[in-house]
């Protein structure tokens, strides 16, 4: 069983939901990331989504766009991201790490070399925003052979037919994007999310995470009431953006945010 599947199985027996923070690797400087990952786990994160910086993050709002720009200003590459995961694994062999990013850096490295290197580094899953399963038949095979969970997105516009198709390619969990838009958008409609999750659950047994629009303990708790996992991206990255000049404050501030969310979700 993969680390991701184990994690969801354990949480299920505990009657808890997964808290999944997102950070862009290398934001706001490369030295910040690994200690931050450990701090997030200590604060209650169950899975870490580590963003691979890309020059053209088409599905991201300004907060994560700027995170990519800060990381790229330090030349953070996919190789560097994998090294960060390997360093993280020296002290943490349990917490699943999912890479999230765009296809081109992986395409340039080559799918087989990437899958091998990611597996060696201790990566558990890969979410490539711009790779729908239709284009990913070969890639999914390569990932699964390397025991990497291919994570796919579902959206409010995904039809029942496509939900089935997407979930057939996915493993680990599926990620429901709670609204039409880019990361960092506002106004999450929990009732609408719940209705769509019912539809998704009728079509797959995979755990369903929900992201986009979760900004504080209150929204995290609301979403945890209907989803198997709560993904928090821009709200976390905002704490990095606010502390670029004093990077020592990044980990404590993010840990405080996640602790609040954890408490509210478990209450």
């Amino acid at each position: 069983m993969s680390r991701v599947a184990e994690c969801f199985a354990r949480l299920k027996t505990e009657g808890r939901k997964a808290l999944i923070p997102y950070v862009t690797a290398g934001d706001c400087q490369p030295g910040v990331t690994v200690p931050l990952m450990h701090a997030m786990v200590a604060a209650g994160a169950d899975i870490i989504e580590l963003g691979v910086p890309f020059s053209d993050p088409m599905a991201d709002g300004p907060v994560i766009q700027q995170a990519c720009e800060r990381a790229l200003a330090h030349g953070v590459s996919l190789h560097d991201v994998l090294e960060m995961v390997a360093t993280f694994r020296e002290k943490d062999d349990e917490t699943p790490v999912v890479l999230m990013g765009y296809l081109n850096p992986i395409e340039v490295m080559g799918y087989v070399p990437f899958a091998q290197a990611a597996c060696d580094a201790g990566v558990d899953g890969v979410l490539t925003v711009d790779l729908p399963p239709e284009e990913g038949v070969e890639v999914v095979k390569i990932f699964k052979e390397a025991e990497l969970d291919p994570i796919f997105l579902l959206s409010p516009t995904t039809t029942a037919e496509r939900i089935g198709k997407v979930c057939a390619s996915a493993s680990g969990f599926v990620y429901y994007v709670s609204l039409k838009g880019v990361t960092g958008a506002a106004n999450l409609d929990v009732a609408a999310v719940a209705a769509k999750l019912d539809e998704i659950r009728g079509l797959t047994d995979l755990p369903v995470g929900v992201g986009f629009g979760i900004r504080d303990a209150e929204t995290a708790a609301q979403v945890a009431g209907v989803a198997d996992a709560v993904v928090v991206g821009s709200a976390v990255v905002n704490r990095i953006a606010a502390n670029v000049a004093q990077p020592d404050r990044i980990a404590p501030e993010i840990a405080a945010l996640l602790s609040d969310m954890r408490r509210a979700m478990d209450a």
């Binding site: 599905a59 925003v129 711009d130 729908p132 579902l154 516009t157 995904t158 039809t159 496509r162 994007v177």
Partner: peptide, 12 residues
């Protein structure tokens, strides 16, 4: 060619 986009655009 192909269609390499985020899920929200697939239906459109």
């Amino acid at each position: 060619g192909g269609r390499f986009v985020a899920e929200t655009l697939m239906e459109a």
